[in-house]
């Protein structure tokens, strides 16, 4: 059964393989966006320039907006009565499906920009593909997010070049940041059964297919920034299966603390 018919027959969603697959996929996308937003929001009132404070908040707001649309859709499709807040605030660490890249601490501004560059260079083509997904609602969310991620990519690329080709100190920091974050990019392109099924159904793209484009984009930026692409080696992963770094639990503890302290309350 295709996602399209799953969507048009709400009574049969639960237990439907295609719907369950899509819920799982929406959670991956939504959690990537939510956790990225949470980290970016930590910069508020701390950025190196006031204009940059505003820019980082814009990107955080874009990611948060995409997260809300994706999680809301996941909750509706799941059919268990969970809304965006139930999914954001009441799942445990092991139930989050985001990639490890987004949960890494912000580090200095160079680490934040390296994370953003790698994420946006992945989200932009991914959302571009998903804008033509067989699932209309996902396609609509992706079409909006694609435009936003073009700006995120441009912004991160601009900073990577400025910092890489700036002072000796900024070059050293940007190089260290790229080296530190690089291993976590492999997980973005890892495939599994769920992705292969959705790929076959025309709902999602196997991310392995966007890696060449990603490398192309990233290498051009690194080159202009007088930086070199790190050597591939260690490939940490597991986020899609709920196996995270030690950082996620702290992030969630902070994000969920008020909501969890008042069960059933509305805000």
């Amino acid at each position: 059964m295709s996602a399209r018919s799953a969507r048009s027959a709400p009574g049969r969603r639960v237990g439907d393989r295609a719907a369950t697959d899509l819920v799982g996929y929406l959670l991956r996308l939504g959690d990537d966006a939510l956790i990225a937003a949470q980290r970016l929001a930590e910069w508020s009132s701390r950025a190196p320039e006031m204009e940059e404070d505003i820019a980082l908040t814009n990107i955080a707001l874009d990611q948060l907006g995409a997260a809300r649309a994706l999680l809301t859709y996941a909750g509706e499709l799941e059919g268990a009565g969970r809304d965006e807040d139930d999914l954001a605030y009441l799942r445990t660490d092991r139930e989050f499906a985001n990639c490890l890249l987004v949960e890494l601490p912000n580090g200095d501004f160079a680490v934040t920009m390296a994370k953003l560059l790698f994420l946006a260079a992945y989200q932009h083509p991914l959302y571009g593909w998903l804008a033509g997904s067989a699932d209309d609602r996902l396609a609509g969310i992706a079409a909006k997010a694609r435009k936003e991620s073009a700006y995120h990519l441009e912004h991160a690329a601009l900073w990577t070049v400025r910092l890489g080709d700036g002072t000796d100190e900024s070059h050293r920091r940007m190089r260290a940041a790229v080296d530190e974050v690089w291993p976590y990019t492999h997980e973005l392109f890892a495939t599994d059964d769920l992705l292969e099924r959705l790929d076959k159904a025309g709902v999602a793209v196997n991310p392995a297919a966007v890696r060449d484009g990603w490398l192309d984009t990233v290498e051009k930026v690194l080159d202009e920034a007088t930086l070199t692409r790190p050597v591939d080696g260690w490939t940490p992963g597991g986020g899609r299966r709920g196996l995270h770094t030690e950082h996620l639990s702290y992030l969630l503890a902070e994000m969920q603390v008020v909501h969890r302290a008042h069960p059933g309350a509305t805000w």
Binding site: A41, S44, S45, A60, L61, V258
Partner: peptide, 18 residues
């Protein structure tokens, strides 16, 4: 901002501080 108890409130608080 990081502890806002709903995603809607988080978005409006982020926008307000911005």
């Amino acid at each position: 901002i990081t502890r806002a108890p709903s995603l809607k409130r988080k978005a409006s608080l982020l926008a307000k501080v911005q």
